[in-house]
Write a protein that binds this DNA or RNA. Structure first.
Length: 142
DNA sequence: CTTCTTACA
DNA sequence: TGTAAGGA
């Protein structure tokens, strides 16, 4: 396994992943990655890079740092990846369910807003149609 | 100039 | 996560 030695500096890895150095420091502070150190300077390995790719995907799909961290921890131990795969499936199904609930709530909100929009539009149409003489100002004109 | 930590937004 | 600050 001689390919496990490709190393990166913070700047290189950040650029390669399309993120900032600050982001790498952030995930490290959250315990999701733990790069080696050459003195006090961080040295990232291929493994760190692979983990970051998983982290970024998890974030993109809406998972919390905690959830992503738990998944990565399982990924480390269980070699067969059986346990983490089951956990992943569960988390993914949960996320799908959550998003579907949000979609339902969103659709109901849109229905209500469109109803209000319709009523307001009708009300204005009625008002604008009335002759000026028929309108009664709420406040007397100076 | 690059990197690191700490802290606040 | 961005940004700023201060040190190595």
């Amino acid at each position: 396994m001689s390919h496990e030695s490709l190393l990166y500096t913070v700047t290189q890895l950040a650029a390669g992943l399309g993120i900032t150095v600050r982001t790498l420091h952030f995930y490290e502070s959250q315990g999701l990655i733990s790069p080696q150190r050459a003195g006090n300077t961080r040295v990232y390995t291929q493994r760190d890079r692979a983990r970051m790719i998983l982290i970024l995907r998890g974030k993109r799909l809406g998972f919390s740092i905690k959830e992503i961290k738990e998944y990565l921890e399982l990924y480390d131990i269980d070699p067969t990846h059986a346990q983490q795969t089951k956990a992943l499936l569960k988390a993914v199904q949960s996320r799908i369910h959550s998003l579907e609930e949000q979609r339902l709530a969103l659709e109901e909100t849109l229905i209500e807003l469109r109803e209000i929009e319709r009523q307001a539009t009708d009300a204005l149409k009625t008002i604008e149609t009335q002759p000026k003489a028929a309108r009664k100002p709420a406040v007397a004109t100076k």
